[in-house]
Amino acid sequence: MKVVNITFQFQDGQSDQTHVAAEGESVLDVALNNGIQLQHNCGGVCGCSTCHVYVLRGENDLPEISDKEEDFIDRAVNPRINSRLGCQCVVQGNEDVVILLPRQEFLGH
C-alpha cells in the first residue's frame, strides 16, 4: 500500500502539521483523523464547498477535478486556481502533498 505525507498549513497561524496518508484516503479523512478542524457540512460527498482547501504541492498525484467539484469550488470563499475540495483529494500517487487550510470560521454552502 502506498503512503504519502500530507502537510497541513493554516491561514490562522497554527503551526504546520504533517501526517501520513494511505492510498485511498482523502485530505478530509486525514485532517479529521488527526484532530484538524476542516468543515464538511455534506459529510464529505462533494455536496457543498465547506471542505475547500488550497493544494500547494502534490496536485499531480491527486484525481483530476470533476465538473461537480468545480461547481462547488466556485461557491467557496476566495477560490483560487489551486482550490480543491478536501473530500475529493484522494491519495493515489507517490508525491507528498502540501495543503493550505483557509480559516474555518465561516458558514459554507
Results as ranks from 00 to 15, higher is better:
Ile36His: 11
Gln39Gly: 14
His52Val: 13
Arg57Val: 12
Leu62Ile: 10
Gly44Glu: 05
Val45Arg: 10
Ala31Ser: 03
Leu38Asn: 06
Cys51Asp: 15
Leu62Asp: 13
Cys42Ala: 09
Leu56Pro: 00
Pro63Gln: 13
Ala31Pro: 01
Ala31Gln: 03
Val55Asp: 04
Arg57His: 09
Asp29Ala: 01
Arg57Cys: 12
Ile36Asp: 07
Val30Asn: 01
Cys46Pro: 02
Gly47Pro: 04
Gly47Trp: 06
Ile36Leu: 05
Gln39Tyr: 07
Ala31Met: 03
Gln37Glu: 13
Leu32Glu: 12
Gly43Ala: 12
Leu56Gly: 02
Ser49Pro: 09
Cys46Asn: 04
Thr50Ser: 09
Thr50His: 05
Cys42Met: 08
Glu59Ala: 06
Gly35Asn: 10
Val30Gln: 00
Arg57Asp: 14
Gln37Pro: 08
Cys48Gln: 02
His40Cys: 15
Asn41Asp: 15
Cys42Trp: 15
Asp29Gln: 03
Val53Arg: 06
Gln37Ile: 08
Val45Pro: 14
Val45Ser: 14
Leu56Met: 05
Leu56Arg: 08
Pro63Thr: 09
Ile36Arg: 09
Arg57Ala: 15
Gly47Phe: 08
Ser49Cys: 09
Cys51Tyr: 10
Val45Asp: 12
Leu62Ser: 11
Glu59Tyr: 02
Val55Lys: 07
Val30Thr: 02
Cys51Pro: 08
Asn41Gly: 15
Tyr54Phe: 02
Asn60Ser: 10
Tyr54Trp: 01
Asn33Lys: 14
Asn33Tyr: 09
Gly43Asn: 08
Gln39Trp: 04
Pro63Gly: 12
Gly44Leu: 10
Leu56Asp: 05
Glu59Ser: 06
Cys42Lys: 09
Gly44Asn: 07
Glu59Thr: 02
Tyr54Leu: 00
His52Met: 14
Val45His: 13
Pro63Met: 09
Val45Ala: 11
Leu56Cys: 03
Gly47Ile: 11
Val55Tyr: 01
Ser49Thr: 08
Leu56Ala: 07
Cys48Arg: 03
Val55His: 01
Thr50Met: 06
Ala31Tyr: 02
Tyr54His: 02
Gly58Met: 00
Gly47Glu: 13
Leu38Asp: 07
Gly58His: 00
Asp61Ala: 13
His40Leu: 14
Cys51Phe: 07
Cys42His: 15
Gln39Cys: 12
Ala31Val: 02
Ile36Cys: 08
Asn41Glu: 15
Glu59Pro: 00
Val45Trp: 11
Ala31Asp: 02
Pro63Tyr: 11
Cys42Thr: 08
Leu56His: 01
Ile36Trp: 14
Gly35Tyr: 07
Gly35Asp: 07
Cys46Met: 03
His52Pro: 15
Thr50Asp: 08
Asn41Leu: 13
Leu62Tyr: 11
Val30Pro: 00
Leu32Ala: 10
Gln39His: 09
His40Gly: 14
Val30Tyr: 01
Ala31His: 04
Cys48Val: 02
Val30Cys: 01
Pro63Phe: 08
Asn33Ile: 00
Gly58Cys: 01
Ala31Cys: 06
Cys51Thr: 11
Leu62Gln: 12
Ser49Val: 04
Cys51Trp: 07
Gly35Ala: 04
Cys46Ser: 05
Asn60Arg: 06
Cys48Asp: 10
Cys51Asn: 14
Arg57Met: 12
Pro63Arg: 13
Cys42Gln: 09
